[in-house]
Nucleic acid binder design. Sequence first.
RNA 1: GGCGGCGUAGCCAAGUGGACUAAGGCGACGGAUUGCAAAUCCGUUAUUCGUGGGUUCAAAUCCCACCGCCGCCUCCA
Length: 479
Amino acid sequence: MTIKLYNTMTRSVDEFHPLHPPVVSLYTCGPTVYNYAHIGNLRTYVFEDILVRALKLAGYQVNRVMNVTDVGHLVSDADSGEDKMEKGARREGKTIQEIARSYYDAFVADMNRLNLLPPEQWCWATDEIDTQKAQVEALAEKGFTYVIEDGIYFDTSKFPDYGKLSGQNLEDLKAGARIEPAAGKKNPTDFAVWKFSPKNEQRLMEWPNPCGIEGKGFPGWHIECSAMAIKYLGETLDIHCGGIDHVKVHHTNEIAQAEGALGHPWCRWWMHGEFLTMPKDDGGGKMSKSSGEFLTLAVLIRNLLQRGVSSETDAALSYRYFLLNAHYRQQLTFTWDGLEAAANAYKNLKRAVLELRASYTGGETPLADHENKFNEAVLDDLNMPRALAAMWTVIKADAPAGEIYATLLKMDEVLGLGMAEMEEEALAIDPAEIEKLLEERTAARQEKNFARADEIRDQLAEQGIEIMDAAGKTTWRRL
RNA sequence: GGCGGCGUAGCCAAGUGGACUAAGGCGACGGAUUGCAAAUCCGUUAUUCGUGGGUUCAAAUCCCACCGCCGCCUCCA
């Protein structure tokens, strides 16, 4: 099956074919581990997870690398300001290694809760300093860099294609620049590939400078991705993804470095996930990790539990469902009402899945028409809203329940909503006790003592038991 | 100020020239069912796609203008 994907570089949806089938090499920009990921960050990782699953659906084998940034990411603009990791460590009174580890663990926990497939390879910026220095040296040898007081800079005027990803040329960028370029930079768009340690201040992380320059320093933020991606995935990369905000600076600079060092085109495809934004009356705009004001998955889950969602798993996957309801290239506004609607939909889905599973023997095959419709949507630039529509259609299809269930399991390989793992919640009450109460209630109803009958019903409801009066017989289930 | 995007039912959201007499979900309403509910099932819920023009045999889909919203241009997913 062929898959069509949007390519930021060409600004069009085209058929995607890897360079070396059946393997697709994929690099996904990962977190800077100085704080928790927020639900906006997580939207991008959910998009990438869908991409991986869609590529597998198309028959490919995905070799995905994701980096963990634990050095060099500065808090301020124009290659100045503190290192985010050093600032984070100071804020918490811990070592950099401690906060890196704990926020990485938190990130992996979030990934697991959202059913995100792990990358084939994680790589940490501080483990790959030599790789990055080698790229700096390769750039220096080819004349792409110059040295000023605070570091080694990439001269963007030496790279004719600079800005091709965002469709801007150097002149536009100069004209639109609102901030003063750092002192000594030749062009506003030039960026540090290596920063020298400040003279009057002891850095927590520093390494001997490359290019035979005396003293110590640390890698520029952009260099890690281009250096590590090449090390782990080779000189030509099939797909590189990240958040939409990375188009203009981070990925643009990565291209300049990588192609400058390699001397040939690097990534065959670029994909970017749009932002999750907050409504105006709720702070407004996109969420900002650096401002410290943001919503984490843990807080979102806690909120959903208070709103009656029955478990952490259901809450997390309700968020996944919420994201799947919108296309990845479309901005999505986060609202609690919207999330609650998704949680309701997820609950209804779970009910249907559990009911259908009861008829499933394991031998049924998926319903081809429905499966095709679903696949078509997924392979058309990851149109998950349409894919979800196909999912609901099969749930209501006039077909044997076991076959519907088999179809859902197949769809869930892409959806990742954990259908096979869906389980009833644990009971807060002994089933024998429930039966006893139901008998009492049935007797009360026969005597037309409805007050007592309703009392029992309310009592059970409080313990998460819902009772259903069907013809002649009353059954129960978990709410 | 420059660049980009969006505006589809109460809400979220697909569709981007003819199969649209516009998916799907949430919500709401009506019916069946019930002692009453819940759950379930059936049905209803945009003659219309921000507004006004235009192009076309044909437009939610293309063009122009206007109104409104959002993002980027600063670290950022």
